[in-house]
Amino acid sequence: MKEINRAIAKRTLLTIIGGTLIASTGFIGAALLHGCSSDSGASTGGRRVVLQTRVTLDPTAISAFVTGFGWKVTLTRAVLATGGFYYFDGAPPLVLRSNHRPWEFAERWLGIREAHAHPGHYQAGNAVGQMLEPASVDLFAGPAELAAGDGISGFYRSARFSFSAPPMGALATALGGHIVLTEGRAEKVGEPLRIFRATADLVDVERSAAAGHVEGCEFEETAIESDGVVTVRIKPQVWFDLVDFAQIPAGSDATPSEFPAESQPKIAFAQGLAQLSAYRFTYSKL
C-alpha cells in the first residue's frame, strides 16, 4: 500500500506546469543574445520577429451551434476583455490538428486529426513570443486588430490566452466591469425558448483558471521565421457546452434571463470560459 500512497500523492499534484516564462521583452532579448533555441527542434530559433495580433470569432459560431446538453444556441453578442497572450514551444496538452514537423509526416499519414490529452501534464516549455496589451473585443464586429507583439523565430506550439480586469479599451464601458458579456437565444425541443444574457467576472473564471490565464491552448505548430500575424480564433460554443438552460427562466428581448450566482448555468459558463479548447492560435506571414 505504500506504493499506492506514493503514486496518488504525486498525482494529486496534477497541475499545469508552467515552463520558462519570458514575461518581458527584455527577457526575450536575452534569449536572442543566447542565440540558441530550446530543444524544440527549431534550427533557426533566435531572431526577433514582430507578431501582429488578431482576434476573431470561429466561423462555426457565426450561426447557431448545438451544445453538449442539446441546446441550439444562437449568439447575438459576445464581448470580452482580453489580457496578454503568451506563446510557447512546448506541445499543447490538447492537439486539435495534426502536427506539421517534417519528421512527423508518418503520423499525419496515419491520420491524426484530433486529440485528447492530459492537460494536467502540460509543460509549456520556453516562452517564444508575447502580446502584452489588454483590450476589449466584440466578436460579432469582425476581426479585431490588437496591439502588435513580439517574439523570437522558432517553433510555436502552445499559448496562453488571458482575460483582464478591469476591462480596458473601447468596449470597457459596455462590459460594465465584467470580463465577458454575451447575449443570445437557446432552443431545445420540448422546452420554451430561452433569451439570455450571460456575464462572467474574473473571480468566476479564476475558479478554473488562475488569474484568468487559460494555459495550454493550441498554437497550430509553425516554424516562425519572419514577421507575421497571430490570429486567435474563439469558439463560444465551448463556453456554453455544459450550460443547462433548463435551469433559467425563459427571459425576453426586453429582459433577457441572467445566470444566477452559484447556479449550474453560471458555474458551467465560467468553467467553459476557462477551457483551453475555446482558443486556438495560428500564424500567417505578412
Binding site: 451544445t67 453538449g68 446538453f69 496538452p93 490538447l94 485528447h116 490529452a117 492530459h118 492537460p119 494536467g120 478554473s208 495550454g216 465551448v238 457546452d241 455544459l242 443547462d244 449550474q264 458555474i267 458551467a268 468553467q271 477551457q275 483551453l276 479548447s277
Partner: peptide, 28 residues
C-alpha cells in the same frame, strides 16, 4: 448522465457526459 460541473471540470476534454469524460480519461 450529464457531467456535473459542480463536481467535475472537463479540463479541455470537451466531454458533456460522464461517459464521454471517462472515455477521454481512459486515453490518459
Amino acid at each position: 448522465a450529464p457531467l456535473d460541473v459542480k463536481l467535475y471540470d472537463p479540463s479541455g476534454l470537451g466531454a458533456a457526459t460522464q461517459g464521454a469524460f471517462v472515455t477521454s480519461l481512459v486515453r490518459t
